[in-house]
Structure formats: structure tokens, C-alpha cells
Amino acid sequence: MNIEELDLAGRRAPVKAKGAAARRRGGRVREDFVLETVYWDAGTARLLPRLLKGRTRGPVFVTHRKPGPGKVVSPRDVCPDTGFARLSYGQARALLDGHTAVHGPGTGWDLHEYRHSSLTHLGEAGASLLMLMAKSRHKKPENVRRYFKPSPEAIAGVTSLLAPGNSRR
């Protein structure tokens, strides 16, 4: 994702759909893919300026240094203002693990778990299955269901709806 693609006022940005890879057809690479929109809330909107640090173009997520002399990097993957390289998935995974690990490296969150924990939080807040599917961009309900793991507190709250004298019954 590049800074130029962010709609900061609308708090959204277009991204390639899940599984959108360039396909080969007749020996040629086909670059057409579906664009979907991701949205963010006010908290993220407040943090984005700190992440961008005044940059107005180039990759949104960058490393903290320039690529080494032997590293071949596409011009699209380098910030034109700072020269810093685009943050790779592996680097993002290592950073998240490093900042969330409790019992040493490899014990923190991974990006996939982090993404799907939001489905659990949204489900506990009452979001419908259709909304969870739209948010996560899953096509099949069974794929979303396996990530929705209600907490013991949420289950206790639902159970309390059956209590005698409950006004919501």
C-alpha cells in the first residue's frame, strides 16, 4: 500500500483482494486483479500521521534504514523522500512478535492471529456473520466461524439472557 492510495479523510484505501496474484495466460503475466476497500477507525486515523512522519508518497510501511548496497529493490518499494525500503511481510511478522512476546522470541502474536482476533471482538460486540465475512473478505461462512472464538465472559453474558426476570426476554 502506498501513501498516495490512502483516503485519509474517508479513512479507507483500496487493496488487492485476498489471493490476488498476477496470473500467467498464454505466456504473458496478467496484472488484472480485484481491488477491495479496507477501512480504519478514528484511533488508526490519529496514529497514521505518526507513522507517515510527513511523507506524502511511497510505501506506507517502511523499514528504519535504507537497503544495503548489494540489495536489489524495485524503485516502487523505496520511499522517494527517505530512501527507506518497503517493510516486508517477514519483517512485519518479526516486529509484531518482538513487541508482543512474553516468553522470548516466537511467543508473541503473529499477523494472521492478529487479523482474526478482530473477528472475535466484532462477533462479541454483536456483528452478524455477514458483516464478519465482509470485514474479513472471506467468501465462505465456515471459514469465518472457525476464527470466531467467544471469550468465557461473552458466553456467560449470553447465558445470563436466560435468567428469570431478564427484561430482554
Rank of each mutant, 00 (worst) to 15 (best):
R137E: 03
E124D: 07
K140S: 11
A20C: 13
P150G: 07
V78D: 00
L6P: 04
D77W: 01
D7G: 13
G83T: 01
G27F: 12
A17K: 11
G106M: 08
P105W: 09
R30W: 15
A85E: 03
E113D: 11
R24I: 15
T56P: 02
Y147D: 05
H103K: 06
A9Y: 11
V29S: 10
P75H: 04
P105L: 06
Y89C: 03
S160G: 14
R30A: 13
R28C: 12
T107Y: 13
A45I: 10
G19P: 06
H99K: 08
A156F: 04
A9P: 04
R46K: 14
L96C: 13
R12C: 14
N166G: 09
L52Q: 02
T100I: 11
P164T: 09
P141Y: 06
P105N: 07
P49N: 02
D97Q: 08
M131V: 15
V62A: 02
L47H: 07
V29T: 10
G26V: 00
L52N: 00
V38R: 15
Q91W: 09
V144L: 01
R30P: 00
A20L: 09
P150T: 00
V144H: 08
V38E: 06
S151K: 05
R55W: 02
I3R: 01
K53E: 01
R93F: 12
L132F: 07
L119E: 00
T120M: 07
E4N: 13
F33H: 13
Y89K: 12
D110R: 05
P80L: 11
D32F: 05
A21N: 14
G10R: 10
P80V: 10
A154G: 08
V62M: 01
A134R: 15
R86N: 02
H138P: 10
L119V: 03
Y114I: 06
E142H: 14
K139G: 08
N143W: 14
I3S: 07
L119R: 00
L129A: 10
C79E: 01
A94C: 13
A101G: 00
S167F: 10
S118D: 09
V144P: 03
Y39V: 06
L48D: 04
V73R: 00
R169E: 02
F33N: 01
F148V: 09
E142V: 06
K71W: 13
P14T: 02
K139R: 15
D41Q: 14
H112V: 09
S151L: 05
R76N: 05
K18C: 11
R46I: 05
E142D: 04
E36H: 12
D97M: 08
T56A: 03
R57P: 03
R50A: 12
V62N: 04
A21H: 15
G104Y: 07
E124V: 12
N143V: 09
L6E: 04
S88L: 08
M131K: 14
R93V: 10
L119I: 03
R145Q: 08
A85S: 05
H99F: 12
T107L: 07
